[in-house]
C-alpha cells in the first residue's frame, strides 16, 4: 500500500516539474518513480487511505485558508514589532497540551504553530508542545493554549486523525 502511494506521488511530482507528455518523458518518470518507491517505500506512511474520503478534503481546504490568513497576519505582527521604536517584546517558553494522537497530525500542528503570529515550536515530548512566544499575552495556561493552537487543532483533528 505504501509503495503504491509513494509511486503515485512521485509520478505526479515528475509530471508537474517536467510538464511534457510525450512517451519517453512519461516512461522515464515511471521508471524513476519505481526506483524511488523501491528505495524509500518502507519509510513512508501506511495509512494514507484515509485521504480518499472527500470529507477530509473539505476540512483540508478550510485549514489551508485559515493557515494562509494566519501567515499573512504573522508577517504584519512581526513588522509591527520590528519597526516599533520601543520593540514591544516579552518573550518566553510556554508549555501547551495537545489532544491530537497521531504523529503526523502533531507534526502538522507544530508546523502551523511555527508560521502563526509570534510563536515557534521548540520541542515536542509526548503530548506537550513547548513553544517560544515573542509576546506572552496571558499567564493562564488554559487561556494561552487556546490562543496559540487556535482553530488549527480542531481542523487538523478533523482531517488528519
Amino acid at each position: 500500500m505504501r509503495y503504491v502511494t509513494i509511486f503515485i506521488l512521485s509520478l505526479v511530482f515528475w509530471l508537474l516539474i517536467t510538464f511534457k507528455f510525450t512517451v519517453p518523458d512519461i516512461a522515464a518518470g515511471a521508471v524513476a518513480s519505481a526506483i524511488t518507491a523501491a528505495i524509500f517505500g518502507r519509510y513512508y506512511f501506511h495509512n494514507v487511505y484515509k485521504f480518499l474520503q472527500p470529507r477530509r478534503w473539505f476540512w483540508f481546504v478550510v485549514y489551508l485558508v485559515t493557515f494562509i490568513w494566519a501567515c499573512i497576519k504573522a508577517n504584519f505582527d512581526v513588522a509591527y514589532r520590528v519597526l516599533h521604536p520601543a520593540m514591544p517584546i516579552r518573550p518566553g517558553i510556554v508549555k501547551v497540551k495537545t489532544t491530537l494522537r497521531s504523529d503526523f497530525a502533531k507534526t502538522l500542528l507544530a508546523n502551523s504553530i511555527t508560521m502563526t503570529p509570534g510563536t515557534i515550536t521548540v520541542d515536542i515530548i509526548g503530548d506537550d508542545i513547548y513553544i517560544h512566544w515573542i509576546y506572552i499575552r496571558s499567564e493562564d495556561p488554559a487561556q494561552y493554549t487556546s490562543m496559540v493552537t487556535g482553530r488549527f487543532e480542531e481542523y487538523i483533528k478533523k482531517f488528519a486523525e
Binding site: I17, A32, T36, A37, I39, F40, T107, N111, D123
Partner: peptide
C-alpha cells in the same frame, strides 16, 4: 531527531530523490 523532523523526512525524502533523478536525466 524529534518526531517533527522524522515525519517531515519521511514525507520529503522521496521527493528529494525524485528531484535528483530529474536533474540528472535533464
Amino acid at each position: 531527531m524529534t518526531v517533527i523532523v522524522k515525519k517531515t523526512t519521511q514525507l520529503i525524502a522521496g521527493i528529494i530523490f525524485m528531484y535528483g533523478i530529474y536533474i540528472i536525466l535533464h
